[in-house]
Design a protein around this nucleic acid. Structure first.
Lengths: 187, 187
DNA sequence: GCAAAAGTTAACAGATCGGTACACCTTATT
DNA sequence: AATAAGGTGTACCGATCTGTTAACTTTTGC
């Protein structure tokens, strides 16, 4: 079992899960789309659940890497980066094939809080919160934890609204709100 | 087909769908939990999809009724009601069996934007946005649409975070943020 | 060049999926 | 009492679900 083969499978499965959902995607479809045989698939992953968890881990890596990097490209100061996060989100929303946040969807389909898939989704959100808490600290916020929490709330809200509300611009409204909260947190 | 029987079926199905998810809930399980025969179930609802849409409609009715009423009980002025919405949310989060927003979950499981279930979920969010826009108008906000949009963003974010982030108080952080945004929108 | 590892196809479990066919039983109205 | 509508249980349909088995081929390392 070449490890890179495994990575390739995870990467392709990730795309299908993101596009079609978890319960709605059967192993047969994954086998067909990856071109690998079912036997090989089950040699790499003991169960479908294992495959989903692996896909979520890859998604967490990819997404956070992209998000943090894009934010740093857009703004130099920590305060500017808190705001730039919403411009990065807006870029994401406008991508072809944008289908919302994979972790919100994972948490929605696997609701038991101790389910491995739910845990994986929760960890992703926790990591994002910690990251923005440290950025808020560097920005010199009076209460960095609270400011970061509020920034993240706006981010989550923007993602959900980008999926369910058409004809409006959640990223921009969220950005403006963050701008105001930030100004108040720095005085 | 007594119409009240149909309502009873929708009401029970709603509970199961909310608790266990849509794809994860089979018609067999619903038949078992409602005590009705499969034949009768399919006399009332042509397909599972029809049943889900009916359940979502009932949920929309129930939730908005509860939410608006509770907010009015908590605050008299429109400005106060915008803030009280987060206290109402907090009550909801602390209820036994809280499992997040049914419409976010529906939108997550049925992603095609023209799918009847997705449409139903989007309508719910649209109605909420319109309601809070009118409350923001009554409160005398400078830009009621923008303020309402931001309040709703914070609400959605709080719901998602209440599901995925433990050991933190999203409703309170969202409330504080709304408080600040409101103050700025009224000056 | 040879053996182990990793890959393949293909058929097959047993369960569950959404949905239907059919014969029987209640109940209210006439 | 007769009828018809609404409700019942049960068995069934073909498709799909996750996961397995077995025999065969390719790639790889030594």
């Amino acid at each position: 079992m070449r490890p890179n083969k495994r990575d390739e499978l995870v990467s392709k499965a990730l795309k299908v899960f993101y596009r079609d959902g978890f319960h709605a995607t059967g192993m047969d479809k994954l086998v067909a789309e990856t071109g690998v045989s079912k036997t090989s698939m089950y040699k790499h992953f003991r169960t479908k659940e294992d495959l989903i968890v692996a896909a979520l881990r890859l998604r967490d890596e990819n997404f956070r890497e992209w998000f943090y990097r894009r934010i740093e490209e857009m703004a130099e100061t920590p305060a500017g980066q808190l705001i730039a996060s919403f411009d990065a989100l807006k870029e994401w929303f406008e991508e072809d094939g944008f289908r919302g946040c994979m972790f919100i969807k994972a948490g929605a389909e696997y609701q038991e809080t101790d389910h491995p898939i739910h845990v994986q989704a929760a960890e992703h959100k926790q990591l994002l919160l910690e990251h923005f808490t440290s950025v808020a600290e560097q920005a010199g916020a009076r209460d960095p934890q609270k400011l970061a929490s509020q920034i993240v709330l706006l981010q989550e809200g923007a993602i959900v609204s980008a999926v369910l509300l058409k004809n409006c611009d959640p990223a921009e409204d969220a950005r403006d709100a963050a701008q105001q909260l930030l100004a108040l947190a720095l005085t």
